[in-house]
Amino acid sequence: MSRQWILASQEGFETSLQYQDNLPLPSATSLSPNSVLVKLHAASLNYREIQIADPNGLNGPIQTPLIPGCDGAGTVLAVGSSVTEFHPGDRVITYPAPLLASSHGDDAPASFAHVSAMLGQGADGTLRSVGVFAETALVHAPASLDWLSAATLPCNWTTAWNVLFGGGPTKVTNPVAPGSWVLVQGTGGLSVAVLQLAVAAGAIVVATTSTPAKEERLKALGATHTVNYATHPDTWGQLARGLTPSGRGFDIVVDVGGNQTLPQSLAAVRVDGLVAMVGAVGDMAAAPVPLFAAFMHTCVVRGVLCGSRAQLKQLVRYIDEKGIQPAVDDVVFELAEAKDAYRRLNEKRHIAKVVIRVDHPEEVEG
């Protein structure tokens, strides 16, 4: 039998998330030609899951019931007749935008036009023990990672890869390289992913945080310096800038807070540096920052939403080559505890990625 969570409505996760067990397993014999049957071993959460369940979230309305989650890792059980990339027994991770890859190819960049069709929003996601996915919703998992670590990669780590190594004109003027200065914000999954990738590339990383305990964790992950934004709410951008050579500013600033943090990000970036806008976890009521501010700081501002399927494959190879071990939160949840995992993420009590172990000894692999 199989188990899963569904969003039965869109009234916030506390009300909308419902657990279902003792469900019949999907049939391997009824797979469509381009589908893959996967036994999921682990999943991880992104802040987008909170927003998708929220009727006032940025992601907009969804059709319910829907299985949430876009990050997962598992083993292929069976494949459809036209599937060529995967075989039973393969270790795989999910790619969040399968419709984009199937219609525009592996190199197509993700945009908000494709968000509504992503896993966990427009298609059933990963908070289940066994699921059927499109071939383009999967890539081979890194050989060097366990299931929990592998399950952190699809959304946050692909976005981080896109920021530091991705396409667009910023790749020419602002590539991450040995000696680059990179500023990340907080200890969430995306910020930690950028930190770990940038350190592996030889960059010097400064991280903001709010507590001494988290400062130590960030330094253990490779941050050279930390700045406490709680004690310096209006000046942390300038304080961080002062850590760079001659106070010139950062080559890359990764902004996860949106309007609340953008003024400080702009204060921290160097002339011709890059501010990568990758999230909006800050105060949604903060005053909008006009785009004209980029002119005043003579910098590049780039919006980044996940990445292409090809970039996820590149990331997998890089992780295996560099021996990177993605950080995960100290608390590991079981699938039946997914609502508690949502709470930990929503209350920002986590460090790095909130992960969920999906394996269950009573499940049948057939």
Rank of each mutant, 00 (worst) to 15 (best):
M1F: 09
M1G: 14
W5V: 02
Q10M: 09
G12D: 07
F13Q: 00
F13I: 04
T15W: 08
L17F: 07
Y19T: 04
Y19S: 07
N22C: 11
P24R: 13
L25H: 11
L31Q: 06
L31K: 09
L31N: 04
L31V: 12
L40S: 01
H41N: 14
L45H: 00
Y47S: 02
Y47T: 01
R48V: 13
E49Y: 02
E49I: 00
Q51N: 12
I52K: 01
D54M: 08
P55A: 11
Q63R: 13
L66Y: 06
L66N: 03
G69V: 01
C70H: 05
L77E: 01
V79Y: 03
S81Q: 14
F86C: 03
R91L: 07
Y95E: 00
P96F: 05
A97H: 09
D107P: 05
P109Y: 06
S111M: 09
S111D: 09
A113H: 13
S116W: 10
A123Q: 14
G125E: 02
G125T: 04
L127N: 02
L127V: 07
R128F: 08
V130W: 03
E135N: 10
T136Y: 08
H140E: 08
L145Y: 09
L145R: 03
L148G: 00
S149P: 02
L153G: 01
W157D: 00
T159G: 06
A160Q: 06
L164R: 05
P169M: 13
V176T: 11
P178Q: 14
W181A: 01
A193E: 04
A201Q: 14
I204C: 10
P212H: 10
E215S: 13
A220W: 10
G222Y: 12
G222I: 11
A223T: 04
T224R: 14
A230K: 15
T231Y: 02
D251W: 03
G258E: 01
N259Y: 09
P263A: 11
Q264R: 01
S265D: 02
L266H: 02
A267Y: 06
D272A: 13
G273C: 07
M284H: 12
A287E: 15
A294R: 07
R302F: 09
G307C: 11
V316W: 05
V316P: 00
E321Q: 15
G323H: 11
I324S: 03
Q325H: 13
Q325I: 14
Q325D: 13
A327F: 08
D329W: 04
D330T: 14
V332N: 01
L335I: 10
E337V: 05
R343K: 15
R344W: 05
N346C: 07
K353V: 01
K353T: 03
V354D: 01
V364N: 13
